[in-house]
Write a protein that binds this DNA or RNA. Structure first.
Lengths: 161, 161, 161, 161
DNA sequence: GATGAATGAGTTTTCATTCAT
DNA sequence: AATGAATGAAAACTCATTCAT
């Protein structure tokens, strides 16, 4: 808490005006990170374009977000396993993720993706990106264009009929 | 530390006979988890069998391990983002992961997998499993046989030529 | 302080316009409570009536005040043991208590009460009421008419010649 | 807490080995004070002696305890109005007070005391002593032998038939 | 080797007080 | 006069580590 306050240019006590305790702060922070991440994911996404174009845009956005905001990504991952996140935040999060869910549905509707439970498809997309970015970061080998393209191809081929 | 000691049926102080401090304990614990996980991964793996059979066995083992030892999986994930793991453990880990690395190479050598950097292939496999298990756990929807098969198919199709 | 301000419908800072600090606020508050309590004690007291009538009125008033303003009574009791009350307030309090003191003196002058130090008589009266009300409150057994009459009888018999 | 630790010659953290938090510490402390006070009250009490002798002994013990352990008395009074004491401690306290209760009953059985609810009698005794000691303390006028005798007489006369 | 009470530095939380508006 | 966000010192509480037995 004191570190967060310092970073924010506040006294520790001031934090407690805005958040009643550490738990609340983490929940709010998590929700905001989630929100901003999802918003980022759909930047430049044009539903009018063919599906693969749109999906590629979103996929690249997700990857880029995880790379550029690695700290936020780590924070969110840690929250997941922490005792801090409460039911309320969990529900909010599920709500926020809906656009991504819709996108995957479209892929199935247009007969591009396999007939697999939408949630599983989504998790597959996320998983392949998250682990890829994490490993790139910790092995200190920045993702080359080729690497990214390979990741995308594997993801796409995995889901396509 | 005291909680770990209690769980181990030891006094707090006794822990410090076996481990110099918390950092060392976590590093050793992490290495052991890593070791035991890898060993589990290759249970019943018969290199004599055709590649897809062998790969399927390993893939299923990884998934099963993550499900059955979810707590260890979480611990290892947390370690990754923690300031505890030292260079030495990181290197050991890389060493341990070699059998998996070899397996992926074989997939490429036998022209089953795409011509993609072996590490990327491995990370892709791991990622799709990890995220899948994590989501199943936290959404409290146990993985059905169908779900597992779908996950495998996506993973395989993603990598195959 | 902030809680008091909120209860008063003020901003925290506004409190500090009227009271230099917490100590002053408590002293003023204590003095006012004391004042209002004493005033209450002598409601309907008619010095023209025989002593016992007058005394009974006052005694009943004290009891009623402690019951109806239990929170104020508690506040005053707590102040007594706190490091907040200053000499000045103590003196003021002693001044305020004089009417009660006079009443007890009258009891002695009229040869109704024992020849005991007036202060001791007064404290005896107060003590028997305070403890009685406190116990009734915390044991959640409201004082019945009989209980009150018994309390009065004990108090009276204790002091009468 | 730190002050208590210092007084006890311990580090603050050590306190938390013996008491899980401030609330528990206060409850335990209160119960012990209560216990030790009651024990003190019945020092030298000989049930074989005539009632008035026994009662006088106990009465004087109570007074002496409150005088000699004024700090404990204050602590107990403050606890009463604090949000700290829990139901459990309250019940324990009621249990402990039983010997005093019994003593008052004896007074009624032997037709010495008025036919008044035992609890009320007890509260009357306690109240007259507590307030007396408190006032003596804060007005810095130590109780003289005469004052004590007067207090006793008032208390006794109040209750006797 | 084993113990577990004790430590104290660090963290979270509270709250009286201030001050720019 | 009034506000209420900001402060920071102090309180409550935690936890890795030590050490006498």
């Amino acid at each position: 808490m004191s570190e967060i306050a310092r970073e924010a240019g506040l006294a520790t006590g001031t934090l407690y005006i805005y958040f009643k305790n550490k738990e609340e702060l983490i929940n709010v922070l998590f929700a905001r990170c989630r929100q901003s991440s999802i918003e980022n994911y759909f930047q430049n996404y044009d539903p009018a374009l063919p599906f693969k174009s749109g999906f590629t845009t979103v996929w690249m956005n997700i990857l880029q977000y995880r790379v550029q905001h690695f700290d936020k990504a780590v924070f969110m991952d840690q929250c997941y396993h922490s005792p801090f996140l409460n039911e309320c935040t969990m529900k909010l999060t599920k709500q926020m993720i809906k656009p991504l869910f819709k996108l995957m549905e479209r892929g199935k509707e247009e007969n591009v993706f396999k007939e697999i439970d939408t949630f599983s498809l989504m998790v597959f997309v996320i998983g392949s990106i998250h682990e890829g970015v994490k490993n790139a970061h910790y092995s200190r080998k920045p993702l080359t264009k080729t690497a990214v393209n390979n990741m995308f191809t594997m993801c796409w081929d995995g889901m396509k009929r």
